[in-house]
């Protein structure tokens, strides 16, 4: 095979390829520039829109703040004026209540003292009647007591005294008997006891007990 045509073809092919690549790169660069241009334009539009929005937002906020301040001021004014009106009304109300309560209390005191006076007068009269009746009844009871109950009481008291005295005597007698028995028993010796026992048997024999 001849080599030179092949090499020439190869070189031509390379050149073609090189031209193609260069053209492609140029085209590509051109497109990139266009894209950049578009991007810048859009970026500028975006910033413009955003700036407008921010400006509008600030304006709205300012308007809203101003309006709120106006509302607050007016509300404060209303509150202050309402408070003054209410205070005034309350003071008037308190004065009225005080006047009425004083007059009511005065009236109540007057009627209460009149009522008490009447009650005291009628109670005193009733009490006098009752105490007179009680006195009469008591005198009658004392008289009845002196005539009937007192003698019975005195008699019962005497009998009670006698009974207690008798009980005391019996108790004393028992105690004395017991004490003297104990002492007597301890003072007798065994021999004396035996002797007295034999004496008892002698008496029994004399009476014929063992016959």
């Amino acid at each position: 095979m001849p080599i030179l045509p092949i090499e020439i073809l190869t070189i031509i092919a390379d050149v073609v390829i090189f031209i193609f690549v260069g053209y492609y790169a140029y085209t590509l660069r051109k497109k990139e520039k266009e894209v950049d241009k578009i991007e810048k334009k859009e970026d500028a539009d975006y910033h413009k829109i955003v700036d407008n929005a921010l400006t509008k937002e600030r304006q709205i906020l300012e308007d809203a703040t101003q309006e709120a301040d106006e509302i607050i001021s007016s509300a404060e004014y209303v509150r202050q004026s309402s408070k003054e009106a209410i205070d005034h009304a309350l003071q008037e109300l308190v004065k009225q209540i005080q006047k009425e309560s004083i007059s009511t209390a005065t009236g109540f005191m007057t009627s209460y003292s009149d009522h008490l006076k009447n009650l005291a007068t009628s109670s005193l009269t009733d009490f006098e009647d009752v105490s007179k009746a009680l006195q009469a009844d008591l005198q009658k009871q004392i008289k009845d007591f002196r005539e009937s109950l007192l003698p019975d009481l005195e008699k019962e008291l005497d009998e009670y005294k006698k009974m207690r005295l008798k009980q005391s005597e019996e108790t004393i007698a028992k105690i004395v008997q017991k004490a003297s028995s104990d002492i007597f028993n301890k003072s007798i010796s065994l021999e004396d006891h035996q002797k007295l026992l034999i004496d008892s048997l002698e008496k029994a024999k004399a009476e014929g007990v063992f016959d």
Binding site: S181, F184, D192, L196, S200, L201, K203, A204, E207, V209
Partner: peptide, 19 residues
């Protein structure tokens, strides 16, 4: 002991107090 001294006898059902 409360008899103190002497004796009380019981023989054939009969009591004799010599205390």
């Amino acid at each position: 002991p409360d008899l103190l001294a002497g004796a009380v006898l019981n023989f054939n059902g009969r009591f004799f107090d010599y205390s």
